[in-house]
Design a protein around this nucleic acid. Structure first.
Lengths: 253, 253
DNA sequence: CCTAGGCCACTGGTCCGACCAGCATACTAG
DNA sequence: CTAGTATGCTGGTCGGACCAGTGGCCTAGG
């Protein structure tokens, strides 16, 4: 055995507000503080932690940014502990997607991958109720076919959300949502100039009908393949030709 | 047409610090501020935004919590804009996992999905150099077979990273990394008590050899199937039986 | 008795001014 | 020319102050 020498750890200055954050976060994470419960008021916390109100406030700001608590001015009951949400996850993923110099190719690849798998899972795991939700969203799409495309795409989003929810996996829901959003951001201007949006919508509806049938029949593999091909057909023309190859492995053999 | 009545939107009080956050965040997101660049000092910002220093500081705290910037006391150059990181993503996912919104089943499902697809893509897109990196990582795993399992799992991580990089998709790299981390966190204690870790390692090496061969031969589908089955075999026993069914659709027909 | 109304104590949001310790640079003494 | 110090900034923390809200209490009117 090595004669383990005395080891010193690098000293890290821990700011006062960080200690406050830490303690409150631990209380929430460990369940000693449940969603809906209230924290003491800032002035009370300042006494309990032995720090100034500024420090307490900075700590609360951090927790607020992390969706751990919520403060309302004037509420005598104090800051509220929030239930866990995917909002932060979504925001951080969005930031990452925009920062990582992601091209449309990468985003589309990821989306094909996710949505395909979502269908694969949904086809097996969906309940009748979720099936009905997809039906409703699809009906809404058909109804909005003639109207502006903002309503149409809202119905489209609702459809995909229903599919994602059917997988019972919040990760799939969030990631799908984010990637879809970023993809749309990247090409909405190009898409707006598309020659015939009406034709695109009709094609989209036809595709959704087909894929929904596959989901209803439990044919996951087929739904997966359909979705990926549809995405490719719809978006590939906007992907630089050199990068298009990275989408092909997902189209199956 | 409906005689569209005048519509009023609910008034939302926007806090001063929120608007400061918003502006700085936008500057970073839009690229007007790049990683490594510096923000003006708090006193300077307070003049530019026309708010007090407390308000500026609360805004900076929020950005700091979101890993957008970093402040060091005394640094005359001011707060630094950070490159996008996965830390927040990881933390928020972790919190969701602890809040039981996310069980091992969901995480594992997502990981099976991601890693399978990663192999599928890597088998087609990998370069010789990336293949060599996987080889090296695998060799390291074999070398560490006898040693502590922290070295072993580090080599394991290196292998999976090499695979993810071969897909040329940063999203896949990041998500894979994060999910792998959270999964390990969730069961590391259970895994530590496993009867025979040595046997598990050997089995893991054997699996990696096989899957790497599939990648080298360009058999993406096979690599995908192998990886998912391996993950299932390795982890499924820790998943509540009732939720195990949600993993089965990914194991293929 | 009960209820509608206003009152009030307290909340969080913002501002100000002050002090401290830390950092990078310029300057100074050797 | 170098070593060390002085300096002028930085962010971190503190205390006190004021304001606009909120919700419960208390009261006047039924």
């Amino acid at each position: 055995m090595d004669p383990e020498p005395v080891r010193f750890e690098p000293v890290t200055t821990v700011r006062a507000y960080e200690r406050v954050v830490e303690q409150i976060e631990q209380a929430v994470l460990s369940g000693r503080l449940s969603p809906g419960e209230r924290l003491p008021s800032e002035r009370e916390l300042m006494a309990q932690f032995g720090v100034s109100r500024s420090t307490v406030r900075e700590a609360l700001r951090v927790l607020q940014a992390g969706e751990v608590i919520r403060s309302r001015a004037g509420d005598p009951r104090g800051p509220e502990v929030l239930p866990a949400s995917t909002a932060v996850l979504q925001k951080s993923m969005h930031r990452l997607a925009r920062a990582e110099e992601l091209g449309l190719a990468q985003l589309l690849q990821f989306r094909m991958l996710l949505e395909g798998s979502a269908y694969l899972l949904a086809a097996r795991l969906r309940t009748e109720e979720q099936l009905a939700q997809m039906d409703a969203a699809l009906a809404e799409m058909r109804a909005q076919l003639g109207r502006g495309d903002s309503e149409f795409s809202r119905a489209d989003v609702a459809f995909h959300d229903a599919v994602a929810r059917a997988t019972q996996n919040p990760l799939l829901v969030v990631c799908g949502e984010v990637v879809r959003g970023v993809v749309l951001e990247l090409i909405e201007d190009k898409l707006a100039h598309a020659a015939d949006r009406r034709a695109l919508m009709r094609k989209s509806v036809a595709h959704h009908i087909e894929v929904l049938r596959a989901v209803r029949d439990g044919e996951g593999e087929r739904a997966c393949r359909l979705a990926r091909h549809a995405l490719y057909d719809y978006y590939a023309e906007y992907v630089p030709e050199a990068e298009r190859a990275m989408l092909h492995p997902l189209l199956g053999s």
